Amino acid sequence: MAVEERNKVELWAKAIEQISGTNDLGSEYLNFLMEVTSKNTTIPIIVVNADGTLNSDANITYNEARKEEVLQKELKKMKDRVVPIKIELSENEYQLLYYRESSILRNLRLYPLVQLFVIVIFIVVAYFAFNATNQAEQNQVWVGMSKETAHQLGTPISSLMAWIELLKLKNVDENLVKELEQDTKRLERITERFSKIGSKPELLRVNIVEVLNSSVDYLKRRSSDKVIFETSYDEKAYVETPLNAALFSWVIENICKNAIDAMGNNGTITLKLKEKDNQVYIDISDTGVGVAKSHFKTIFQPGYSTKKRGWGLGLSLAKRIVEIYHSGKIFIKSSELGKGTTFRIVLNK
């Protein structure tokens, strides 16, 4: 089309030459030449004299008051893009014809880019749709497994509770029965957690300090003596926050258990709590091996684990519980290889 437009302009220039340079044209031939020049209704044209002054133009829209300014701008664009066509008027007199592509041709040049853009958009949408479908399927599998686990745990827990009551009647060592009772309650809580995966849990206004204290006490009893737990907050304070205590304590325990593994069962875990504006900040620090910056986000993805055993779901579930169920945030605040890591949890009061 570009070549065809060039041919049309050359024919237009040739017609002007013939009209200007011959006086003895027959009327039919003259009419033919005039028709050739009038047929061009799409290609913008500017004709300049040999001295560079504007002579005539065609197919350029402008306001009469701004004619000179518009034509000069158009001429500059044309000079940058095309080689002018010389119109020989006489032996010593000539004009130069400049032109640019028609709007149809310019739009056609953009058409492949528009097509490419549409294809890219389609591929991106298809990719995200596929990922969303895949993620939804995975979520359904995990939800199904969680609920089935909770269901399967129900029967043995009921039996354990009955056995504990029987042991109480048999005057068995009180401390032993108490420990069994605590472990059974722990199993009940785990079952409750699994049963709530996949459904929006109920948030109650509770004292988050009590939830932290309870989680730390449980972890202390189940951890090595070489693991030291420090709390940098008032353990008797009252900080009311909308929480699902069973699920949130799971978050604290998961982070602390990861910290214990990172420290090799030997080090210090520090929990800090502070209020600011309408939010609660919980920082959990350890003295473990640390996390590389490149893993700050991937550490929360399902399957990520540096341990030989385990499925790498702890931190993924923690993120889901904090961000989806509690509308909060959880992230690695800071970490230094060989020195330790600090996780931060932000909750709305």
Rank of each mutant, 00 (worst) to 15 (best):
S102V: 06
S103C: 09
S103M: 10
I104A: 09
I104P: 04
L105F: 06
R106D: 08
R106N: 10
N107G: 06
N107Y: 01
N107A: 03
L108H: 11
R109T: 14
R109S: 15
R109M: 14
L110H: 14
Y111E: 14
Y111L: 14
L113K: 15
Q115M: 13
L116K: 08
L116H: 05
F117I: 08
V118Q: 03
V118A: 06
I119C: 05
V120T: 03
F122Y: 09
F122W: 05
I123L: 04
I123S: 01
V124M: 08
V124Q: 05
V125S: 06
A126K: 05
A126H: 00
A126S: 01
A126C: 04
A126G: 02
Y127F: 09
Y127P: 06
F130L: 04
N131A: 07
N131V: 04
N131F: 10
T133F: 10
Q135F: 12
A136N: 14
E137P: 07
Q138A: 09
N139H: 10
Q140F: 03
Q140A: 04
Q140C: 00
Q140G: 04
V143K: 03
M145D: 13
S146K: 01
S146H: 02
T149M: 09
T149R: 13
T149W: 08
T149C: 06
A150M: 04
H151V: 05
H151R: 13
H151I: 05
Q152E: 10
Q152M: 11
Q152G: 06
Q152T: 09
Q152N: 15
L153H: 05
G154C: 04
G154K: 11
T155D: 12
T155P: 04
P156M: 00
I157W: 00
I157Q: 00
S158D: 13
S158T: 15
S158Q: 15
S158E: 15
S159T: 15
L160A: 12
L160N: 09
M161L: 10
A162F: 14
A162V: 14
W163D: 14
I164V: 10
E165H: 05
E165D: 08
E165P: 00
L166S: 14
L169I: 08
K170Q: 15
K170M: 11
V172P: 02
V172N: 01
E174A: 11
